[in-house]
Design a protein around this nucleic acid. Sequence first.
RNA 1: GGGUGUGUAGCUCAGGUGGUUAGAGCGUUACGUUGACAUCGUAAAGGUCGCAAGUUCGAGUCUUGCCACACCCACCA
Length: 865
Amino acid sequence: MTQYKETKGLDDKFNSAAIEERGMRFWEESGIYHYDETASRDNTFVVDTPPPTVSGSLHIGHIFSYTQTDVMVRYNRMKGKSIFYPIGWDDNGLPTERRVQNYYNIACNPALPYDPDFKPVHDPKADGRREVSRQNFIEACEALTGVDEQVFEDIFHKIGHSYDWRLKYTTIGSKAIAESQKSFLDLVKKGMAKSVEAPTMWDVTFQSAIAQAEIEDRETAGFFHDIRFRVEGSDTTFTIATTRPEFLPACIAVVAHPDDERYKPFFGKKAIVPLFDIPVPIVASEHAEPDKGTGIMMVCTFGDAADVAWWKQSGLPIKQIIGLDGRIIDQVYGQGNFVSLNPEKAKAYYDQIIGLKVKEARAKIVEFIRESGDLLAEPKPLMHPVKFYEKGNIPLEFVSSRQWFINILDYKNELLALGRKIKWTPAHMQSRYEAWVDGLNQDWCISRQRFFGVPFPVWYRVKENGEINYDAPIFATPEQLPVDPMTDVPAGFTAEQRGVPGGFVGDKDVMDTWATSSLTPQIAMAHAPAGHHITMPFDIRPQAHDIIRTWAFYTIMKSFAHEGKEPWHEALISGFILDPDRKKMSKSKGNVVTPIDLLIKHSADAVRYWAARAKLGIDTAFEEQIMEQGRKLTMKIFNASKFVFMIMDKAGVSFTGDYTNAITEPVDKAWVARLSNVIETANKSFESNDYAFALEMTEKCFWDFCDNYLELVKGRAYSTHPESAVATLMLTIDVLMRLFAPFMAFTTEEIWQSRPWACDGKSVHVAPFPQVNELAGITGDAMVYEKAVAVLNLIRKEKAEQKRSLKTPVITLTIAGADKAVALAKMAEEDLINAGNVKVTPVWVNGSDLALVECVFGEDEKKVK
RNA sequence: GGGUGUGUAGCUCAGGUGGUUAGAGCGUUACGUUGACAUCGUAAAGGUCGCAAGUUCGAGUCUUGCCACACCCACCA
């Protein structure tokens, strides 16, 4: 059996570093965090751990929320459950790609063949960015994430998180890829995934489609442009106010509200777009609001989501002018859909904006309409919300392209219903989920035009004329997974047929990183030992509230599609760490403290204490003082325990293991009743995920123990009849260490292993969490203890007020109180005499509240000397 | 514009089912301990529990309205 340490007893001085070393090694070697796959599902606590993104450094926010989960897990472990607590690294996706590109100075070119001899080298200064094949690029990603992951792993070990490291996975690992592809094929089979050519939100920087969940609004400065439009066949004009004049050449219609008297006469007629002289229908539409702008607006290809929606139902021609690179496309005005009453004039204008970026084109068009007199007023500045990709800094555009979509809009009701089957802590986080599902207006676009991600298990036939036939994709078979269509060959074809007429091509996109992350339960199960009994729903999903719309939502969606039920019973939503100015801490503000420094400075248990003090879902200020408080607490736990061990040693009591018969004094039994209350509260709190309250009550009880109970009984423990007091002290340490264990994982282990009694060498973390029935038969009337402390405090207070030492002897003492109170306090008379250094037998008299009637001090012993 | 949450001592936060003079830690000040304690204790100062009504014998705790802040969602001509 693994031994915790060579030496017996506690060190002279509290040394957190040494204790942490011992704990880490002991837990690792004894394998107490290993998942037991033979346990039944009922007897297993299953956690859907969030895999942290490893591109970059670990944030103190990770430490915060992951520690809260660890506390809950430790409680459940002590309740005797087998624990399935996996850990994974989310290394798939854009953040990793960008880091790898810069770190190794390489770029991915999927057209290149794999180079088995390529070795990535950290060389950011090298000239030119070397292009490598997708497989080589992925290997480079894996190499770098491997390094990053080791750093993360070290920190999680140091903070004492109790993952089963044997279950470790990465989201770019082959099993995770296989799971993602399996999920995709299942969605295809169920008719929920389809590939369509449609306008989608497009980021021109990353040149990829993105999903609704990755969009964020930013208040952006812009200008209103009042532009004159003519009504065809008359001199009548009207004014359109727009922030995006560059869309004039892409205008397909003009709309106003059907009840808008100003524009009613125009409906059915045509408007003439200035500069380009495009005749477009003037249409009545509910989605135009009379009181916004001038009440009449242009519909373009495509200014915003409303344009897209309107275009879809109108059947009007598409006039795409913005390309995938965010520049104006080389269209020929006067041809195809680009009709004009004056094609040559239109072409002359349009040709001048071809190839320009959107902003440049806008400036140019403004220049033109100013010259032509169609700009009716100087542009008016305004601030308005504009959609951005959350990681980008150029506004999104709607661009038509072929993408894979998952149908979510048709299942909103089912997804809401599943959300209601999950217990959310805090409960109000459920409304965030509901708000998000309610507000969904796009299906989930899961294809990304990137490289480091899960490829689609799909190929397309190449027609004899060289065109790609997207209508009948060839899907991989389950046996082929994981598959890379860029290198693997579909059944029935040979490698030589790639890219040739009559042959095939692979789908070159990769999946949205959430398409993989949303499968963390399935991925974790794929990494579990054979014969495991894990099933969905999992027990808990811990996560932060910012990713309810992504991770939580997508996981529920996938679970709905694949399992037909909710992915977890409970969602535990953690808050954020705020800096002292109440702002979310972020790297860009430079206010991030690295976790490793905090662990060294305050100790692991102190940082755990800080995290566990905060309730779930509550944003918490970053306060090193709380960590300092935690450090003092661990030290106090250590010293108090050491003191109890010392008392035991001096008292020379040989303990038989039977607390029930050993604890006989009323005041001791009363103290046990106090303990019993705390045990009940702690259990109740943990059951409702309120670990913070369990900690608070435990801590309160512990200080009470140190300040009062210990002071009361230490005299008796040194006396001729120490048995009851010593047994109670031992019992208290036994109980308190287990109550504290989920929080102060290291310190409690040190003390647990150093007990001179009942120490079987097993970890405190697999000892049973204290239960009230352990103390049945011992507890007495808690009031005995309370009254005794009340009297002791009267004496202490009197000494403080007289500015006398607490050791000052009392030579006359008369205490008044109600009969009942006096009777209770009297039961602890011996301890009161000891603790108060009372030299006489106290006189008890009848009164109302407990009070000192007479209290005379003798000479301080020190001064006498 | 809709929603959720928060508003308690200088700071960070507790305050179960409404019940005596509203709590803790940190910070400040003054004493005292320092033979378990790189500590700890006692005490002081500091709060109209965001504001206003209401229910109640009684409200920090329940109801309504308002104010401020944070976040989420939407709009985004």
